[in-house]
Design a protein around this nucleic acid. Sequence first.
DNA 1: TATATTCCTACCATCCCGATAGGAATACTG
DNA 2: CAGTATTCCTATCGGGATGGTAGGAATATA
Lengths: 133, 133
Amino acid sequence: MFSVSAKTQYAIRAMSYLATLGGRSATSAEIASAESIPSKYLEGIMSLLKTSGLVDSERGKHGGYRLAADPASITMLSIVEALDGSVKPVTCVDAIGSCAQGQGCQPRKFWIGLKDAIDEYLGERTLKDVTEG
Amino acid sequence: MFSVSAKTQYAIRAMSYLATLGGRSATSAEIASAESIPSKYLEGIMSLLKTSGLVDSERGKHGGYRLAADPASITMLSIVEALDGSVKPVTCVDAIGSCAQGQGCQPRKFWIGLKDAIDEYLGERTLKDVTEG
DNA sequence: TATATTCCTACCATCCCGATAGGAATACTG
DNA sequence: CAGTATTCCTATCGGGATGGTAGGAATATA
Ligand code: FES
Ligand code: FES
């Protein structure tokens, strides 16, 4: 239960690898090789990270990816959300009525509390913590 | 991300309904009707709850289900685990080496910390809290 | 015997996910 | 300009999980 998608695990390992380079840039292929990630699959992941503004990219020869910010200021929550979207134990977390149960049910507050607990854990740890810890 | 299966949501609503009966027993059909759950699907869910010892059952005419314990002593974690298994952000939470990454990777502690945070939240709330709150 | 229920097994449709393929756009190099 | 290395885009595929249904066997009551 609550298993994390391979996509997100890959993304975090990739970000972690970039963090060890001290600002140097790396190609998708280099990261894939270093972290044992299917190379072609990683390309798509890096694109998502780019779209979310977590990494910067340059195309063409000598292109590659680099972190867009300091590892200490990139929260794990931002990485997770970039790939799998925001934490939603149930579909009605923000808008009540978006559940199968129209008007909300008893356990709803409980699920929202769970979301808050997860968000808090993910939000207060940074890429730096994870890479060094 | 981290969405809860319909199965588990159904189970919690069913347990919550049983909790309101004050020890009286209810048939699967009654619960299904009261909580708008596909009746035949709920049958399977109730069986799982039975196997896990969370409810008691009686067969035959005038059979049905009742809570096996006081709502205040049934943790939400026990319900969740009965249906979707234990919380496992990554496959190697207990046994290192059971991940694709053989020897463990940097983010592993981070994932285990997440598991602990979720387990704590689920473990310290009871069916009573959820049904009344 | 008739009826109401739990319980068991099989099945199905659909969606999601991890992964691959092929190429277009872009940028550097000589 | 030609060649090459890279990001980026789109399409596709196989497998597995998931939500849900069907049918009936076992069991208990009346
Ligand atoms: S109505 Fe959304 S969780 Fe019950
Ligand atoms: S080795 Fe299990 S999470 Fe990385």
